[in-house]
Design a protein around this nucleic acid. Structure first.
Lengths: 378, 378
DNA sequence: ATAGATTGTTAAACTGATTAAACAGTTAAC
DNA sequence: GTTAACTGTTTAATCAGTTTAACAATCTAT
C-alpha cells in the first residue's frame, strides 16, 4: 500500500487550493493534517515483486502457493526476488480472494476470571500450540450476554473474521451455540444432547469410574459428591457413573450425599459444609473439579477434620500446581492440553472439509496422591 | 492452506478429460459438482444492498461509515434495506481498503502456563473488555523462540494481521521488542531503559515503598527480599526502593538477605530455604510477586516456622483467590485489570495517531492481611 | 439571468491478492 | 506434416469494500 504516496499526492493540490480560494482554509488544513502518516513503511506488493522479477503477478502468486504448474527455474528465480525484497503477502487480500482467513476464534464463558483459569488455560495452551503449527491465528472472545445479544458470535463468521470457532466451558443451557450449527464449530469438553454439534471431550464416565473404583477399593461406602452444572452432559456423566457404581457395590445413594459446588473454590467449601452437616458418616467425597475439591479440603481442615485420615477427597481435572497442595490432591487427570490440540486439529479438518462430523472422546486416568486413604474403621 | 480441496478441484477435471476426450459435458458436470458449497450461505455484498436500495455502492458505503455527506433521507432508506437484508460488511474487504484491521495482538512470553496465569489473566481481562468496547478484536500469541526467529511478530504488522500489539511479561532482555519500535506497540507493566518503547506499568516504586513502610512500622529490621528478573526495570525499582528504604531507616542491606525466586511458587520456596539458612535473624520477607510469597510461606510452614508469628511475608500483585489462602497474604495491590484497560486504550490512541508517546504509571496500594505482624521481641 | 457556491450522489480507481481460462511454445503420435 | 497433448505463463475476472474526483441539482448573490 502506498498510503504515504497517496497522502502526499493528495495533500499538495489541496493545500494549493485552500491557499488560493481563501475560504474554509481551516477546515481543509485540519482535514489534511490528520492523514499524514509519519512512518508508514512503503509496503511491497505482489506487483512490485512481479515487476522486479519480470513475470506476471499470477506467476508470483503461484510461486507463493507452491503451484506445481510453475517450473523449477521460475520458482527459484521468483523466490529469490521475494526474499531479496523481503516481500510478505498481505493476508487481507489473500483471505479476501481465497475463501480462508486462517484464523480461529476461542469463545470463553463470561466468567470474571476466565482468562486466569487453570482449566481453560491448559486447553488454550493446547489449542494455541496446534493452531500455530497449522498456520492459524487465534482470536479470543468472551460470550458476555451483550455480545450474544448483538449477534457478535455470528458476525465472527459472517464478517469473515474467522474460519471456525472453539467453544470452551459451555453446556446445553447456552442456547446461542445452536446459532453456530451451520458453521465450523467445536464444542470443547462437552456435548449437546441433540448430537447436532461437533464436540471433543474428556471421557468423564471413565474418569468417574476410575475415581469411584479407587474410593470403593479403599473401603469407602458412604461417599458424597460435590457436583456442578447438572445441565452439562459431561457433568451428568459423572453423576450417573457415581450412582451406578455405588449401586453396583450394593449401596443406595442418599439424596443428602449430593451438593452443588458451582465449580468454584468457595462453592466447594460450602458444599462440604452442607454434606458434613447432613450426614456425619460420609468418609469420602468425589468432586466435579479440583477447585471444588480444594475448597472442600480447606473447609474440612479448617473445621477440624483431617484429610485424608477422617475423610478422603478426590478431584477432577488435575490442575498443574495443585500437586504442591497440602495434602496433595488425588484426582482424575483430564488430558486438557491434548484436548485443546485435538479440538484445534479437528476444527481445521472440518474447515477444510476433510471430516463432516467430529465426536471425539479422550481417555482419562487417576492420579493417586495424598488426599485419599483407606477408610478409617470405627 | 486447502491442499485437499485444491487437489480435488484440480484432479477431477483432469480425470474426466483424459477419460472422455470429445465431450466437454463430463468436464462441466464434474467441475460444477465440486464447488457446490454444501452450506455456504449466500453472502450478501454491498452490491446487493445497493441494487435493492436503488443507489450506488458508494452511497451504501457512506451510510455504513456514517459519512455526513449522505442526506438524512437516504441514510434512513438505505439503513432500512441493510437491516432487512441482514447485511454485514465483509471486514476483510473493509480492512483491505481502509488501512485499519481493528485487531490488536497480545504477545505473551513462552512460559508453559502463560494462559493459566493469574497475573496475565487479570491484565488480559482488562485488555479484552476495553478492546471489545473500542470495537477491536484480540489475537493471542506466544513469543516462542521459533516464533521470533521466523519474524512472526513482524509479520503481525507487515501482513496486516493487526494494527497494534500489547506485550506482556517481557523485559529488556527480550531484544526482539525493538523490532517493533516503528509500529504501534505498548510494553505492558514494564519499560525499556532506553525510553524508546511506549509503556504502561504499575508504580512498583510506590508499591515497594508501601510494603517496606508496613514492615518497618511493624518493627522489622532484618528484612529479606525474594526478587526475580533483575533485568526487568520494574523489578529493579522494587529492589532499589527496598535498599533505599532500609538505608533510610539506618539499616544496611546484607547480601545474604537477597535471593532470586524466578517469579515461581517453587522458586519462592527455594529462596525462602536459602534466606532462612543464610540468616536466622530474618523476621520478614518482601517478595516480588504473590506466587513466590506463597511458595515461601508454604516452605516456611512446612519447616516449622509460623507465619506471621515467626516471620512476616509480603507479596506483590494481589492475585484474586489468594485472599483465601491460609494465612491470607498481605500484599501490594497492583491494578492489573486497570492496567490492561489503560494499555489497550492507549494503544488504540496511538494507532489513531492521537498520541505519539505513551508512558503511564498506575498507582498501587497495600492490602494488609494475615501474613504480616509486629516483629516478635526475642 | 447568470455565475458561484453548496449539497448529495455516483463513476471509477484502488486496496492486494487468487484463479479460471486463454495462449504460446514444445513434444509426441499418427 | 498435421493434429493432439502437454507445459508453463499470462490475461483478465473476481473477492468486497473505501475514497477521490466528477457531476447534476439546488440555492444564493450579483
Amino acid at each position: 500500500m502506498a498510503e504515504k504516496l497517496k497522502g502526499e499526492t493528495r495533500e499538495s493540490p489541496d493545500i494549493a487550493r485552500t491557499a488560493l480560494t481563501s475560504t474554509a482554509e481551516a477546515i481543509q488544513v485540519n482535514f489534511n493534517a490528520l492523514p499524514v502518516e509519519e512512518n508508514a513503511p512503503d509496503r511491497i506488493s505482489i506487483r512490485d515483486v512481479a515487476k522486479q522479477a519480470g513475470v506476471s503477478i499470477a506467476t508470483v502468486s503461484m510461486v507463493l502457493n507452491q503451484n506445481p504448474r510453475i517450473s523449477r527455474g521460475t520458482h527459484v528465480r521468483v523466490q529469490r526476488v521475494i526474499d531479496s525484497m523481503g516481500y510478505r503477502p498481505n493476508r487481507l487480500a489473500q483471505s479476501l480472494s481465497s475463501r480462508y482467513t486462517q484464523v480461529l476464534a476461542v469463545i470463553l464463558p463470561p466468567l470474571r476470571h476466565a482468562f486466569a483459569d487453570a482449566y481453560f488455560g491448559e486447553i488454550l495452551s493446547g489449542i494455541s500450540d496446534r493452531a500455530g503449527k497449522l498456520g492459524h491465528k487465534l482470536l479470543i472472545e468472551q460470550a458476555k450476554p451483550q455480545y450474544i445479544k448483538e449477534g457478535k458470535h455470528i458476525e465472527l463468521y459472517e464478517r469473515r473474521f474467522v474460519d471456525g470457532v472453539l467453544c470452551l466451558g459451555f453446556n446445553e443451557k447456552h442456547t446461542f451455540l445452536s446459532d453456530l450449527r451451520q458453521y465450523p464449530m467445536i464444542l470443547v469438553d462437552n456435548r449437546f444432547g441433540d448430537g447436532l454439534l461437533d464436540f471433543v471431550h474428556c471421557d468423564y464416565r471413565m474418569g468417574a469410574k476410575q475415581a469411584m473404583n479407587c474410593l470403593l477399593q479403599l473401603g469407602h461406602r458412604n461417599i458424597g459428591m460435590i457436583y456442578a452444572a447438572p445441565e452439562s452432559p459431561t457433568a451428568r456423566d459423572v453423576l450417573e457413573v457415581y450412582t451406578t457404581e455405588l449401586r453396583n457395590a450394593g449401596i443406595e445413594v442418599k439424596e443428602s450425599w449430593l451438593a452443588d459446588g458451582c465449580f468454584t473454590d468457595e462453592g466447594g467449601a460450602a458444599a462440604a459444609d452442607l454434606l458434613t452437616h447432613r450426614d456425619k458418616d460420609i468418609t469420602a467425597v468425589l468432586c466435579g473439579n479440583d477447585k471444588m475439591a480444594l475448597g472442600a479440603i480447606r473447609y474440612l481442615v479448617e473445621h477440624g477434620r483431617k484429610v485424608p485420615q477422617d475423610i478422603s477427597v478426590v478431584g477432577f481435572d488435575d490442575i498443574q500446581h495443585l500437586a504442591y497442595a497440602n495434602p496433595s490432591l488425588t484426582t482424575v487427570h483430564l488430558p486438557l492440553y491434548e484436548l485443546g490440540v485435538a479440538a484445534c486439529e479437528r476444527l481445521v479438518s472440518r474447515i477444510r472439509g476433510k471430516v463432516d462430523r467430529v465426536a471425539d472422546v479422550l481417555p482419562t486416568h487417576l492420579v493417586l496422591r495424598e488426599s485419599t486413604s483407606i477408610v478409617r474403621t470405627r
